[in-house]
Amino acid sequence: MIAELFYRRQALVLGTLSMIGIVAFWQIAVDTGFINPFFISTPSQVAVEFMAQFEDGSVATNVAATLYCFAWSLGLAAVVGIVLGMLAGWFADVESALEPFIWFKYSAPTVAFYPLFVAWLGYGRPTIIAIAFLFALTPIYANTLSGIKNTDRDLARAARSFGAKPLDIFLRVALPGSVPVMMAGLRLGVGRALTGVVVAELFGANAGLGYAITYYGQLMQTTKMMVSIVIVVVLGVLLTQILSFLETRTDSWRVDNNR
């Protein structure tokens, strides 16, 4: 029975076990004096500190601040990325015109633009949202582009044989066919947007998880800092999982049913 359960959920069980193992190792390594808690704190201290920060409301404040910027940046990146991606995927000229910018985006680290945004928008949310927007934009744009551009020629031809006009082909063939690829782009974008928000918050913010991390980091309060790091990790996993779930829902037609 237990063995059967194990085999069925092997990946999940092993993953959980290794997580528990690492946390236990962390706790034991510090308790036995193997590692100085100053550098890494301990799981038990972090848990206690988490409860404290939870009760005084700072967890809620920081998560809310980070999620606010995250939602704006991802939302903007999704709208701009999908619209531009659709245009570039459908009209080769648009793709050529946008190409150099995408090139820059790929070759230059986005954070390098940070001081520029500070000069334009000042310290605070607009700059954070702008940086995170740039982080998230590329995969969403690139995936939408490739989805539309690689529209199945046979399907397009079949549609034309029934008298489909270019707009029909775009709406009924290219767009629905691209949804799974676009969802994959959004999933990547979610991770990028969160990274962008936290990185920008490290540099200049008055709330948010990234802000809390630098703030306590500079005060050398490792335990308090670890609380926010753990929250960022959990948040990232959670958000990406939601998108992965949506992704599998939208591309059920692409895979064999008896998988």
Partner: peptide, 8 residues
């Protein structure tokens, strides 16, 4: 048409 020309 010959092959998979159905919308999947």
């Amino acid at each position: 048409f010959q092959e998979a020309s159905l919308l999947p």
